[in-house]
Simulated assay, not measured.
Amino acid sequence: MDLPVIWFVAIAILWTGYFVLEGFDFGVGVLLPVVGRDNVDRRVVINSIGPVWDGNEVWLITAVGAMFAAFPAWYASMLSGLYLPMLLILLALIVRGVAFEYRGKVDSDRWRAAWDKAIVVGSLLPAVLWGVVFGNVVRGLQVDADQIVVGGLSDLVNPYSLLGGLTTLALFTLHGAVFLTLKTDGPVRRRARTAALRTAVATVPLLVLFVAWTQVAHGGGWTAPLAALAAGALVVGVLLAARGREGWSFTATATSIAAATALLFGALFPDVLPSTIDPAHSLTVWNAASAPYTLTVVSWVTLVALPVVIGYQAWSYWVFRRRVTREHIEPAPAYGGQGGAHASVRLPAARSEPPVPPIAG
C-alpha cells in the first residue's frame, strides 16, 4: 500500500468533515444579528449549535494533527508560510469559544451584546480566511529548494485567494442559514429561510466562478465531476430551501461544500504545497511524508480511535436532534442576576448556560 497517498486522502476527508460541520457553525454565528432580533431569538440561534460546535472543532484538531504526523514538512511549511492568517483564525476561534462561555455570566444587556459581536467576528474571520488559506495552498507559495516559504504577506493577497475567501464566507453563511431552518422553529426559522434565499443570490455565482477557476487553472480531467457536483448541489440546495425541503436542502449544501473541498485537494494532488518559484521545489505526498514506520504506527492508532470519535459525535447529534424554539427559553436570571425577563435555556444546548435535561417532543 502507498501509505503517503492513503494519508493524503485521509487528511482531505478530515478537512472535508471540518468544513461541512464547522461551516454551518460559522454561518450561524455570522447570521446571529440578522435572525436574532431580541435576546430570546439570539438564545435560540446560539442553542441550535450549542451542543455540537466544540465537537465540530475536533475535526480541525484532528486534521492538523494528521498533517503533523503524516506530512511534517507540509505542516511546517504551510503553517509558517501562512502564519498570519492562521494566527488570526486561531485567535478568532478562541474569541468565539470564550463568547459562548461568557455570554450568560452577567445579567446585563450590554454584556451580552458585546459577546454577541465577538461571536459574529469570531465566526466571520475564519469563514473568510479559510478560503484565503486554501486558495493560496492550491495556487502555490514561494517554496525554495530548502522547503522554506520565502514569500511575504503581499504574496497571499491575490485574486484567486480573495475569491476563495468570499466564496467560503458566502457558502458557510448559506449553509448556516439552511441549518437554522432545519434546527429551529418560529420567527428564527422564517428569518433564516429568508436569509438563505437572499444569501444564495451571491453564493451561487461566487461558487460557480471559484470552482470553474480552480478546474481550469489547477484541475485535471478526473476533478471536473467534482466541480460540477459542487455547483449543481448548491443550486439544488437553494431550490429545495425555497420549497421548504429543509433536510434535503441541508444535505445538498453539505454535499456542495464536500465536493468543493475534494476539488481543492484533487487539484492539489500529487503536490501538498506547490512552489511558485520552481515546480521542482514543490512538496509532494512522497517527499513531505514521514517515514514508513511512523505512518504504519499512526495508521493503526487511527483505525482504533477514529471510529470511537465519529460514533460519539454521531450520538451527540442524535440526542440533540430536536428543533429549538422560543418556548424552550424560559425567563430566569443569568449568573448573579436578581430576576427579570432574561433567557435561561431548558435544553442542554449552549455551554454558556447551565445544562438541564432535554424536553421530550
Rank of each mutant, 00 (worst) to 15 (best):
V133G: 01
L182G: 04
L169G: 05
S352I: 12
V30E: 09
M86Q: 01
V309D: 06
P126L: 04
P270A: 09
L268G: 02
L273T: 07
S316N: 14
L234P: 06
P126C: 00
L162C: 09
V128E: 01
P225Y: 09
L88I: 13
A350W: 01
A305Q: 00
G220P: 05
S48W: 03
A343W: 08
G65S: 08
L125V: 15
A259N: 03
S123G: 14
Y83C: 07
G247A: 14
I148T: 15
L240M: 11
V9D: 04
T199Y: 08
L303S: 07
I119T: 11
R96W: 05
L87N: 06
L82K: 08
G221A: 13
L206D: 03
T181C: 09
A254F: 05
P85M: 10
V297C: 01
Q142W: 02
T214L: 07
F19D: 01
H175F: 05
A241R: 07
V236T: 12
G27S: 02
L93W: 11
I46S: 12
F320I: 00
L156Y: 06
G36F: 13
P187D: 15
A280F: 01
M86W: 14
L174K: 02
W115I: 04
D144P: 07
R243Y: 05
L226Y: 03
I277P: 00
L180I: 03
V120E: 12
I310N: 04
E353I: 06
L14W: 00
V297M: 10
L234H: 04
M67V: 11
W53Y: 08
W130S: 04
L88Y: 06
W300N: 03
S161L: 07
L263Q: 07
A332Q: 12
R103Y: 07
P274Y: 02
Q338P: 00
G311L: 10
A233T: 10
N136G: 10
V285R: 10
D185E: 15
I359S: 13
Y75F: 15
Y293T: 14
A224K: 02
A127E: 10
V150M: 05
V238L: 09
G122A: 05
G17C: 08
A76E: 10
H175Y: 01
S249L: 06
I257D: 02
Q215R: 05
I119V: 15
F134C: 01
P187G: 04
A289T: 05
L84H: 01
T181W: 03
A12H: 00
N39T: 13
E330K: 14
V98Y: 14
V9N: 09
F68S: 03
H175A: 04
Y160F: 15
R139L: 02
S80G: 06
V64Y: 02
A314Q: 09
A73P: 00
K183I: 08
L124V: 14
A231F: 00
S282W: 08
S161G: 08
G50A: 01
V208L: 13
W222T: 13
